[in-house]
Design a protein around this nucleic acid. Structure first.
Lengths: 123, 123
DNA sequence: TTTCTCCTCAACCAAGTGGTTGACAACGGG
DNA sequence: CCCGTTGTCAACCACTTGGTTGAGGAGAAA
C-alpha cells in the first residue's frame, strides 16, 4: 500500500466495515465501544479499523476520561471527489467529442468547421 | 477484500499505479503494452493491474488481433461519488446544525464553524 | 487502595496482494 | 509454414491485512 494520502483514503474505504463506521460517524461522534457494538468482532479489531481511518485522515480522536470519541473529518472526502471528478469529466468530454465526430460522419449535424473539433479544451 | 463492487472499486483505486492507468485511459483507449510502457515493471504485473480494474468494472477490454485494447468505464465513478457525497453532506449538515446550536447558545447572529472554511468546491 | 471499564499495544496466524519468472495461446507478417 | 508480437495463466515469493488472544495503561468508581 503506497503511503500517499489519496491511496490511504481509498484503501480505508475499500472495507465495508470501515465504510459502515464512516456512515455511523456521519450521524455523530462515537466512542470505540459504541462503534464496535454492532459488529461481531473484538474491540481490538475495531480499534485497528479506527487506526486505519485515522491514518487516512478520515477520523480524529479526542479524549474523554477513558473514552476516545471518534470524529469524522469530512473534508478529506474532497480529496477523492476531486480526483474522481477530474477523470470522470475528462472521459466524459472524450465521449462527447466522439459523439460529435460520429454525428458529423453521419451528416447528422451541421459541422461548425470541419476538422476543428479536437484537443480544444484548455485544461 | 469484500466482494461487493464498491469495495472493489475503492480497492482498485487505492494503488497509485492503477490510478495512473485510469488517468491514462481517460485520455483515450490503450493496449496493455502501451499502458505498461511508462512503468518499470513486467507486462504481466500490468496485466494483473488491468484485471483488478476490470473486476471492479472500471475498465473493459476488447479484441484487436493479438492486442487487447482497454477502455475506461467512467460510469462506475458515479457509484463512488454517490457514496462519498451522501456521507459528506450528512456530516456537513451535522456541523451546520452544531453551528446553529452554538450560535444560539452564545446569542450570536453569525453562525460560523471554527474549522470549517467552505463547503463543496466540486459537487 | 482496589476494582472495574475503556481502549491500545504486541505477538501471532491465515489469507490476500504485488511483484517476479517461465510457459504458452492467439494472431499477423515473412 | 514458421517466427515474432502481444497478452494471459501458473507458480512462487516477500510483504500486508484483518482477525485473534493476552497484557497492560489510564481513569472513574467503590
Amino acid at each position: 500500500m503506497a503511503d500517499d494520502q489519496l491511496s490511504r483514503v481509498f484503501a480505508a474505504l475499500a472495507d465495508p466495515t470501515r465504510r459502515d463506521m464512516v456512515a455511523r460517524l456521519a450521524v455523530g461522534d462515537a466512542t470505540v465501544g459504541e462503534l464496535a457494538d454492532p459488529y461481531d468482532v473484538s474491540v481490538q479489531a475495531v480499534s485497528k479499523h479506527i487506526r486505519v481511518l485515522n491514518d487516512a485522515g478520515l477520523v480524529s480522536q479526542s479524549r474523554d476520561a477513558q473514552r476516545r470519541p471518534c470524529h469524522l473529518e469530512a473534508e478529506v472526502f474532497d480529496l477523492m471527489t476531486k480526483w474522481i471528478e477530474r477523470y470522470r469529466q475528462q472521459a466524459q468530454e472524450r465521449y462527447d467529442r466522439l459523439d460529435a465526430v460520429l454525428a458529423e460522419m453521419r451528416g447528422d449535424e451541421q459541422p461548425t468547421h470541419p476538422g476543428n473539433r479536437e484537443q480544444g479544451a484548455a485544461s
